[in-house]
Every structure is written in structure tokens, then in C-alpha cells.
């Protein structure tokens, strides 16, 4: 499940922010901001992707680098959010 989410997020990042450039060695824990992959508009694109594809709502308070600034963090955030939805 986690791998599937991470793969989908990675595919989105490569397609939408790296424009298909697979030569970019993007490690799961690399910062998307520090590596120039995402800017302020990009964060909003990322949030829209998560909401559209994962069926969850991202609250304003959740839009922080701690949740969204690497593939690993995004995956963990989606996983936790999805789990809380199921539990509810």
C-alpha cells in the first residue's frame, strides 16, 4: 500500500515538476524545496493532487514542509490520513 502511494507520488512529481526527467536522482528523503523541484505554486499543485487522487482533504494546518517536503514525508502523510479516515 505504502509502496503504491509512494510510486504514485513519485510519478506525479516526475511528471509535473520534473517534466519527465528521470535522470534527476531524487532520493525519497530529498527536500523538494531545497532541490528546486517545487515552489509556492507547486505546493498547491501537490495538495490538489493528493486531494484528487487519494480522496482526502488537506487542511491548511497540514500544509507544512514536515508533511510535504519529500516523497517519504508525503507518503507518510497520506498513509496516516487515509488510516484515520478508515478508523473513523
Amino acid at each position: 500500500m505504502t509502496d503504491t502511494i509512494q510510486d504514485a507520488v513519485k510519478a506525479f512529481v516526475i511528471e509535473n515538476f520534473l517534466f519527465g526527467d528521470t535522470t534527476h536522482a531524487l532520493a525519497d528523503t530529498d527536500s523538494l524545496i531545497e532541490n528546486g523541484i517545487i515552489d509556492s505554486t507547486g505546493v498547491l499543485e501537490l495538495v490538489a493532487f493528493i486531494e484528487d487522487h487519494c480522496g482526502i482533504t488537506v487542511a491548511d494546518a497540514d500544509i507544512v514542509p514536515a508533511n510535504l517536503d519529500s516523497l517519504a514525508r508525503i507518503t507518510a502523510f497520506i498513509t496516516a490520513k487515509t488510516a484515520s479516515l478508515v478508523a473513523a
Binding site: I33, D39, S40, V43, D60, A61, I63, V64
Partner: peptide, 16 residues
């Protein structure tokens, strides 16, 4: 005048 910034948290603004 930059819509992308209006909606960002303090943490993101600091990072950007």
C-alpha cells in the same frame, strides 16, 4: 499579488 504565497504556512514561507 502572488496567489501561491497567500495560502502558505509560516513553515513553508520560511523554507521558500
Amino acid at each position: 499579488y502572488l496567489p501561491g504565497l497567500r495560502q502558505q504556512s509560516a513553515e513553508y514561507l520560511f523554507s521558500f
